[in-house]
Nucleic acid binder design. Structure first.
Lengths: 148, 148
DNA sequence: TATATATGGTCCGATATCGCACAAAATGGA
DNA sequence: TCCATTTTGTGCGATATCGGACCATATATA
């Protein structure tokens, strides 16, 4: 029988897993053909933390194998949404930079999601949602640092 | 520029996506070889809502294509964790039942996660985590009904 | 400096995910 | 009842994910 704290984690992670699947479906419904959630996630990450990250930086940030990141980036490059530049500080690695097309696509997808979110906001208490955001942010940061 | 409500949804879904990836890594580190998160998720779902669901029931519950569910269930059957029974009410479909081995495995994995969660609980304010759980549950239910 | 070890990225093969098409069975309407 | 439509599950091919191996480069150590 799990104790109280572990039960809370278990239940929270379980709910988060289901919500992630549902929200991913919402997102992918607005992505152009050939792009899936991981592609958008990378574009978004590069906006949030800034251009010029290396593939390994992002593989670690998303806790995915570096081979998966290679593959995702290859898709983004082939669509002209990001570009590689050599890393002046480290000959082994590359930097990933957004193209104008990449920035524009991210903005367009977010704009397209607007009506979806508007519709959802009409049926849910947004005060409660806004209230949990800081906790989720802290939890995300905590889990991110707690893995070693 | 997205309005306030859509921004909240966007940020919450973004945090949830990252937390899901991190928590999935925690889970899969405790699963025996050959099993990945979707396998465990199915076992867990069958405990939560009860045995005897059909593959389509679960594909809908997880918002996953039915072909993906077929594949996941095939893996669980091959490991002896669930079994199919014919559906007396509908000749097209099957029912999925947990085996003793399946129930035991789920319990063992949860037990193995205990220490991980204990360690995490030591560094995070569990009051705040417990407080967001009902909101996540309501959000999950809301999103689940809002898709049509 | 010379060498061993660690790290970044890619290739390759195995498994997972998913859209499409199909067959079997159920449902609904004439 | 008959037939069209819907629904459930699976086979198949294309893409995604991931572990292991590998090379190039950086870092640590003697």
């Amino acid at each position: 029988m799990p104790d109280q704290d572990t039960a809370v984690f278990f239940e929270v992670f379980n709910e988060i897993g289901i919500i992630e699947q549902l929200s991913r479906a919402l997102l992918e419904a607005r992505l152009p053909g050939g792009l899936i959630a991981p592609h958008f996630t990378v574009l978004n990450h590069l906006i949030r933390v800034g251009d010029g990250r290396t593939p390994m930086d992002m593989a670690r940030a998303f806790q995915v194998p570096k081979t998966s990141m290679t593959h995702t980036l290859k898709g983004l490059v082939s669509h002209g949404l990001v570009e590689f530049r050599s890393n002046p500080d480290d000959g082994r690695s590359k930097q990933v930079w957004l193209t104008d097309k990449g920035r524009a696509l991210r903005a367009a997808v977010i704009a397209d999601l607007g009506p979806d979110f508007e519709r959802l906001a009409a049926g849910f208490d947004m005060e409660r949602l806004a209230a949990i955001r800081p906790v989720l942010t802290d939890l995300r940061k905590y889990l991110d640092t707690a893995r070693d």
